[in-house]
Structure formats: C-alpha cells, structure tokens
Design a binder for these strands. Structure first.
Length: 833
RNA sequence: GCCGGGAUGGCGGAAUUGGUAGACGCACGGGACUUAAAAUCCUGUGGACGCAAGUCCGUGCGGGUUCAAUUCCCGCUCUCGGCACCA
C-alpha cells in the first residue's frame, strides 16, 4: 500500500464529524482561545489566499486544542454585496440564489481542506436572522445620535452606482472594488459618528501589542491627528468672517492671502455681493473646480488654480488687509475648508503666490541667520526656527511661539486650540439592492422615523428583479417602499438605500458565539467568556477598512452596555498573512497565473496543500507558489507514511511509551531520544511564540529523516522508535491532520489525534553528551573539537591549547589575548611572526 | 515628501542575548535498482584557487564599534506597502 490520500482524507473528515470533534461550548474550567479568520465573501470558489488563511487558522486551532485550550474556531460568509448583483444580471438569476449556491459550494471546499470548524455556528450575513441585528444596532446608534443623516459631498462610483465611504476610496481616488475613479456628489446620506471615537481609536493602538507594527502605523496615518488653532478671519467691509485652521499659528504674521475651497458655502455668499459678470465667473470657476475627480485634483505636482474674489480679509493680529482667493488645492472636507496663506513657510502656498504674483512675508528664520529676502526664496521654509517680523514674538523658537500665540488667540477670543482628525464619519448608505435595509421610513408628516425594534427585521424583498443597467432593484419594489408611518399611521416611504457591507462584518465575530440567539444579537455570557478574539488572521488590505470599523463597533457595543464596559478592543492578536505570488506577481485572473486550490487538493490531497503553504514561507510574508515545492511536500508525506508502514512490527513491539534518558546507553539511541525532544521543543516554540510555521515543518522533516535512518539496536531502541513516530505524528497533526490520524490509528492508538494532548518535552533528553567548539585565530575559523559540555572557560582554553593542531598554528606567533565562550568557541588573538 | 517593511546560494527560505552563515526544501550533478523510463534510495552542491590538505572571498553599498557583525551604530542605494495639495 502506498499513501492514498484520496481514501484517507474523506474517511477522517467523516469520523471528525460523527464524533463532533470540533464542537465547542463555554467551559470555565479551561482557558479559552478564540481563533478567528476573516470570513470569505461567497464569490463562488476559494482561492489560494483563502487556503493560506485557513491553513494557518486551522493549524493554530488544532495546536491550541491539543494544548488544553477550549478553542472557538468558527467560519461564516460575508454574503451581501455588489458581486452578487453583477452576477445576477450576467447569469440571469437572483443574487440570493447565486449567493446561497456559492456558499454551499464553498462549504464543501472548506470541508475538503479538513478545517476543524464548529459548523453549527456558521454565520451568513444575508439572512434576516443575522441582519435584523445589524438593523437593531443601527437603531441603538440612531437613538444615541451615533447614526445621523446629513447632506454632504460624498464619493460616488459610477460603475458601482453607489456612494462609498472614505475608506473605500483607495489609491489615487478610485473605488476599492472596481477601481473606477470616484467623483464627488452632494447627497443626503446616513453616517455613523466614528469620529467621536477618533481619539480612542488612536489611543488604544498603543495597547495592541499583538498587532503588526505596519497595521498600527497605517491606522495612525488614517486617523491622522493634528493639533492646531481654529480661528476667525473677518472679511473687510462686510459683517462676515471665515474660519480657518492651522497647525502653524506661529506664522500668523506672514499671511499674504486667504484661500477657500471651491465648495465652501461662503463662495455663494460672496458671489451674491459681486457684480453680475464677476459673480458668474466666480460661480463657474467654483463649480468647474469641484466637479473634477479626485485623480485630477490631487495629481502630483498639479498646477494650482485660483481666482481672486475681490474681497479682503483682515489679519486679526495686525489688521493687515489681504486678498481672499478661491483655490483648488483647498479641501472642503479637511479642517474648515479655508486656510491662511503663508507662502514663506508652506510650499503649496508658495507655489500659489508664485503663480498669481502675491506677496511673501518671512516670519521664521534660522537661528543666527538674517531674515531671508523674499525675492531670493526658491521654496518655502517649513522648518522650525525663531520668529521674526512677528512683533513681540520675535526671537521666540517655533514650538514656543506656537504655544504662546495659541494662548494669545484664546485670550483674545479670536480662536481656539483644537485637534483635527483626518478620519471622517462613516458613510454607510449604499444605493444597492443586495444589502441590509436601513430600518428607517420617511413619513410625509413626521419626517425621518426609525422602524420600531419589534418590527425588525425589515426584510429585503426577495421577489425583486435586478435592473439590467445595474440600478437599485428596491426602487422598483413599490409594495415594499410604500408603508405606513409607525408614529402617525399616515403614508410613509421606506429608505431604499442599504447598509455598507462593512457593517455586516463589523460584528459577525460576536454572532458566532451565540448562534441560536433569537432575542439578542448574542448573549452577554458568551461574549464575556469568549471575547476578545485572541488571534485574528487575514489579509492586510483591511488595515484601514474592516479593522477600523470592527474596532469602532466594539467600542460602541461596549458603551451601549451590550457588552462588558471593559471590552474596548475586539482583536487581541492580529496576523496579517502575506500574499500568494506566482511568477513574481500576485495570483490574479487577469495575469492568468492562478492556481486552483481544488485541483491541488484533488491531485495531492489537502494535507499536501496545507503543508506546502505552511512550509514555503513564514505566514506574514508573501508566499511564492511552486509546483515543484508542492511535489516536495507530497514526497515528504509519502516518506512519513512509509516510515510507519514499513516498520509496523517494530512499532508493535514497543513496550513502553517513554523511555527516560537515564536508561538509554547507546550513542545512536541517545541521539534519537535527543532529536525527538529537541524537535518537540523547537516545534512548540516555533508555533506558540514565533509563529514560524515554516521552520516548525523543517524540524519535523529532520525528525522524520532521523527516524528513517535509525535502526533500533535493541528493545529500548524499538520503544524509542515508537516514541519518535508518535511524537512526529502528534506534532505534524495540526499541519496535516488526515494522514496523521490514519497513521496514529495504524500503529494501534485509540481515540482521535485531534483530541490527543500535545507531547511534552523531556528536559533530561535535551542535555547533550558533547559539544563542538571551534577554534578561531584572530576571529577566523581554524579548527573544530568535540569536548564535554559545560566546561569552564579556563578548562576549555587549557584543553584547546593542548591540542597539537593548535600548538602548530600558534608556532612563532605571540598570543595577545584568548577569549573563550563555553560550549561555543575559543578565539586566540595573535601578533605577527 | 512623511511613515512602515524588506534586501542572505541557481530558487523558496534558516541562523537564542553579537559567537561554526546557508538549517529544511526545491533545482542541479554523480551513483544504485531497472531491458529502459518513472518512482525510490545513496551521495555531492555559496564562489575562486588547489590532486589534496588547505587558503582566500562571501549576508544590497560605504564607513565605524568589537577578540568576533547577517545581527549593534552612522551614512547611502534599491525595492515593496501605506498615507499625501491634510493646512
């Protein structure tokens, strides 16, 4: 018989299922571990990235289960979203049908991988039993003012036919899904007040020691905190003022213009006070500027465009009159949409005045240097220095000037020191059908009315037909839209926008914990026992999307009293797996370099696929797919199989499971005992502490090689051989569970390996009988000697110096210094001949 | 521009606190088995010189610290990723 994975793998999956090997319940008597994977979108089939994600997850879950932890390891499907609608149009079917069929197929695929999920806990976010609670959370937030509706310039993707949250606009301003350039549109939409949590989201990053530094940095950048002063600038000869925000209030004496965003409301006010020709020109300029896509607006080194309004502003500190311009480089959605222009110390302002011939006033100089001549300046000087041209602040270093002038502004009530964030409130409305309906109606009389909790869920009508042009199918559901107002009973219309699917994924990890719960999204007991997630595994692409939203949701749930007040963060540990690469590029359909997991599993088995993936590179680095490497992994498993099959009589003859080191005499036997236990030791540490799964596999290969070349010399030898084989199977089982179960059974063990305890390390067996020390001369390796371990420095030096080879080498040299490192080396420093 | 990774044989990747660079695997060379091939097993494999013993060079580049540097410090180059007219 050879290694027949196609018979072995289904056999053990069936047994695991029958024996409910992976069912899990709360158990206060054992430490818990919550191992979570980013759940897949049911696109139709798993790709290699999924296989990698879930191989890492299942290994972790199995390892910890064997180590005595009560392990929560669930899976589900993020099953609302655009692709289902697109597929529905293309395949002339319904998104629900397409989605549910895909889920069924992907469940089969996940099972074929051998992942030990608790299948009773599967979450499908497109089912009313799930999304009713998303709606319920929305209502709780609405009640507390955390969900609100406002008119705002929003990001619109023409291809997807919907608005997007800021986080979903990526790169140079394109849609995260279809990469269409996004345009700004003024619309009334629903938002969640995530900015209320900006500071906490930032502060708690410091506590997330189990997260990769890159992700923490990305989130810090995204939240983008900056401290400055918000202040009023009066408009001359008008009872109007403009608010500006600056982080460099110390440069206030250097203002030579004020610039406002094209979308700024004051543009219209000012235009109304202009001559008709001037007015038309201004409004035309403003609308041309604001209509441009993010790509055009932020083109690197883009020429700045501006227009003088003819109005003047008054510098609060000295009464200087300065022109007010509309400028395209001012963003309406950051700060106040208006800035004080200080060309001497801001490169953008500098570029602007050079183009339009406005003045430059230097107000910071390098210490000990004269005030620069504006005419000589070739760029803005944004470095710190000391104040100049700034009245009584002259000579003050920049940080102090920022402090003192800020205080002065507050004292004079000109403005206030303030912290700004780049983070924007989360726009959750989507003009799409296949999503969670927003539980709100618009009453002719009462306006916005939330749907009462007892009327939840607001079910998505499943009899809708997706319009072939990709529009929102809900708009055609007149029966569904027209309803009665829960408040006055009059006519009302349902909200036809659905929620961003990132809402669904913001709390699914709570739902896993209480799958049957009908009167609450999850039970407090379950949440208290299982949360937080101990290890979350997924792609880094969610660093500023899902991972921020889920943190926000967790904080809100905690504040609403739905979870423990102390549960402020959902994910204690985060492992961002690397990409799967083939031929130097990320696997993608367009490049034609995809490898189908199904085919690999069919051809080599799931154990081989998993082993290769875990062996080829560390989990957080990118993985180079190699067909040859897969064959290598398969070859190894065949060798493991043969190791057992060819030695069944020897294995059966073993009389004891563990032989103490003190009873082992032969050198080879002592070596194999040592190899067994150093392997267990290393593999355990590699998995637990280092997450170095690739080196753990390497150790197991070494153990296998060692056992293959070990010929048991006696009875003790046979016992040791069995000890080695059992250790190998136990340690290998989280990587390749099926073959290990099979071999475990073959050597006569009862009970599931999946439930067996992890082998312990026999510390006595780690002690070595001799060590190799090297001789260095002037730091260069020269000789090697075998000596007993634990020799003191002097003893070691004495022994090495006595060697003939060493004497020969030192002949004619003067020994300057001798360094000894016990059990490692002796380095002799010598001087010329 | 700012922030964060990374650079080690032909390839993927290893190297506790500075202490034998290249574990493990792939690929390749030689051999065994075979009529032959595949599979399997044994064996070699960083580069240069050498019959050999051995010597020299070698972890992106240039310096430095040290008896000793892939590892620590200073200065660069290249590369991947994130953010960016963010006031």
């Amino acid at each position: 018989m050879t290694y027949d994975f196609s018979a072995i793998e289904p056999k053990w999956r069936k047994i695991w299922e029958e024996r409910k090997a992976f069912h899990v319940e709360r158990d206060e008597s054992r430490p818990k571990f919550y191992c979570l994977e980013m759940f897949p979108y049911p696109s139709g089939a798993l790709h290699m990235g999924h296989l990698r994600n879930y191989s890492i997850g299942d290994l972790t879950a199995r390892f910890l289960r064997m180590n005595g932890y009560n392990v929560m390891y669930p899976i589900g499907f993020d099953s609302f979203g655009m692709p289902a609608e697109n597929a529905a149009i293309k395949m002339k079917t319904h998104p629900a049908k397409w989605t549910m069929r895909n889920i069924d197929h992907m469940i089969e695929q996940l099972k074929s991988m051998g992942c030990g999920y608790d299948w009773r806990r599967v979450v499908k976010t497109c089912l009313p039993e799930y999304y009713r609670w998303s709606q319920w959370f929305f209502l709780q937030m609405y009640k507390r003012g955390l969900a609100y509706r406002k008119h705002a310039p929003v990001n619109w993707c023409g291809t997807c036919g919907t608005v997007l949250a800021n986080e979903q606009v990526i790169g140079d301003g394109v849609c995260w899904r279809c990469e269409t350039p996004v345009v700004k549109k003024g619309l009334e939409q629903w938002f969640l007040r995530i900015t209320d949590y900006a500071q906490e989201l930032l502060d708690y990053l410091d506590q997330l020691s189990g997260w990769p530094e890159r992700v923490l940095t990305m989130q810090r950048n995204w939240i983008g905190r900056s401290e400055g002063v918000r202040f009023n600038i009066a408009i001359a000869d008008a009872d109007l003022s403009i608010e500006a925000f600056t982080t460099r209030i110390d440069t206030i004496f250097g203002i030579t213009f004020v610039a406002i965003a094209a979308e700024h409301p004051i543009v219209k006010t000012l235009a109304d006070r202009m001559t008709p020709e001037k007015r038309d020109a201004a409004l035309d300029f403003a609308s041309r500027m604001s209509a441009r896509s993010a790509i055009e607006r932020t083109a690197v080194g883009g020429d700045k465009m501006g227009m003088d309004t003819g109005f003047e502003a008054v510098n609060p500190v000295n009464g200087a009159r300065i022109p007010i311009w509309i400028a395209d480089y001012i963003l309406m959605d950051y700060g106040t949409g208006a800035i004080m222009g200080v060309p001497a110390h801001d490169q953008r302002d500098f570029d602007f005045v050079r183009k339009y011939g406005l003045g430059i006033i230097p107000v910071v100089r390098a210490p000990g240097e004269p005030i620069p001549d504006p005419g000589d300046m070739t760029s803005a000087a944004d470095a710190d220095g000391v104040a100049c041209n700034s009245g009584r602040f002259d000579g003050m270093p920049t940080p102090e000037a920022i402090e003192k002038i800020g205080e002065w502004f507050e004292r004079e009530s000109w403005g206030k020191r303030e912290t700004q964030y780049r983070l924007r409130d989360w726009l959750i409305s989507r003009q799409r059908y296949w999503g969670t309906p927003i539980p709100v109606v618009y009453c002719d009389k009462c306006g916005i009315v939330p749907v009462p909790e007892e009327d939840l869920p607001v079910e998505l009508p499943l009899d809708a037909t997706i319009p072939p042009n990709g529009g929102n199918a809900l708009l055609d559901c007149a029966d569904w839209i027209n309803t009665t107002c829960p408040k006055c009973g009059g006519h009302a219309r349902r909200e036809t926008d659905t929620m961003d699917t990132f809402i669904c994924s913001s709390w699914y990890f709570f739902r896993y914990l209480s799958p049957g719960s009908n009167d609450a999204p999850f039970t407090p007991e379950d949440s208290k026992y299982w949360m937080p997630v101990d290890l979350y595994i997924g792609g880094i692409e969610h660093a500023c999307l899902h991972l921020i939203y889920a943190r926000f949701f967790t904080k809100v749930l905690s504040d609403l009293g739905i979870t423990e007040p102390t549960l402020r963060e959902p994910f204690k540990g985060l492992l961002t797996q690397g990409m799967v690469i083939k031929d130097g590029a990320k696997m993608s359909k367009s490049l034609g370099n995809v490898v189908d997991p199904d085919e690999i599993i069919k051809r080599y088995g799931a154990d081989t696929a998993r082993l290769f993936i875990l062996f080829a590179s560390p989990p957080d680095k990118s993985l180079d797919w190699s067909d040859k490497g897969v064959e290598g992994a398969h070859r190894f498993l065949s060798r493991v199989y043969r190791l057992v099959e060819d030695n069944l009589p020897s294995l059966a003859s073993a009389e004891r499971l563990r032989t103490p080191m003190s009873e082992i005499t032969g050198g080879e036997s002592r070596d194999i005992k040592r190899l067994i236990h150093s392997t267990i030791d290393r593999v355990t540490r590699d998995i637990k502490d280092e997450r170095q799964l690739n080196t753990a596999v390497a150790r197991l290969m070494e153990l296998c090689n060692g056992l293959l070349s070990f010929a048991p010399p006696d009875k003790t030898g046979h016992a040791l051989f069995r000890e080695g084989v059992e250790s190998l199977l136990l340690c290998l089982s989280p990587f390749c569970p099926h073959i290990c179960e099979e071999l475990w059974e073959m050597i006569g063990n009862e009970g599931l390996l999946a439930r067996a305890p992890w082998p312990s390390v026999d510390k006595d067996a780690l002690a070595v009988d001799s060590v190799t020390v090297v001789l260095q001369i002037n730091g260069k390796l020269r000789e090697q000697f075998s000596v007993p371990p634990g020799l003191a420095k002097d003893e070691l030096i004495g022994r090495v110096m006595a060697e003939d080879a060493v004497k020969r080498r030192l002949d004619g040299f003067e020994v300057v210094k001798v360094i000894a490192v016990p059990d490692k080396l002796v380095n002799i420093v010598v001087k010329g001949k």
